[in-house]
Amino acid sequence: MKSLSELEAIRQKTLERIALRKEDRDDGVRIVIGMATCGIAAGARPVMAAFMDEIDRRHLRNVTVTQTGCIGMCRLEPMVDVIAADGSKVTYVKVNPEKARMIVADHIVNGHPVTEYTIGNYADQA
C-alpha cells in the first residue's frame, strides 16, 4: 500500500525519467555533442557519460542530451553545443569529463557560461 505522498513521489521521479517522451514538453536546454568518428576518437563518449551522470545526480529535468555529426572542426573535438530554450547557443571545444561537469554546474544550473572553454576564447588564444 502506497500513501498519497509516496504516489506523488513516484509520479515526480518517473516523470523525470520519461519527460523526454512528453509531447508538450518544455525542451529547455539541449546539450548537443559532436559524435562523428572524429568526436568519438577524441573522447566524446566519456564526455557524454559525464553530462548524463551530472544531469541525473542533480535531477535536472528539461535537459536533453543529443548527438550530432561532424561539423568540420575536427581538431577542436570533442565539441559540445549548449542551446538554451531561447535558441541562443554556446559552443565549447576540447571538452573532457571534468569540463563537462563544470559546464553543467556553472552554465546550465547557474546560467554562467564557462567562457574559458568556449570556441571564441580558444580562437582568441590561437
Binding site: 548524463m52 536533453t64 542530451v65
Partner: peptide, 10 residues
C-alpha cells in the same frame, strides 16, 4: 544511472 538520454519505443 537512471537518467537515459534517449528512449527507443518499440
Amino acid at each position: 544511472m537512471e537518467y537515459y538520454r534517449s528512449h527507443v519505443l518499440v
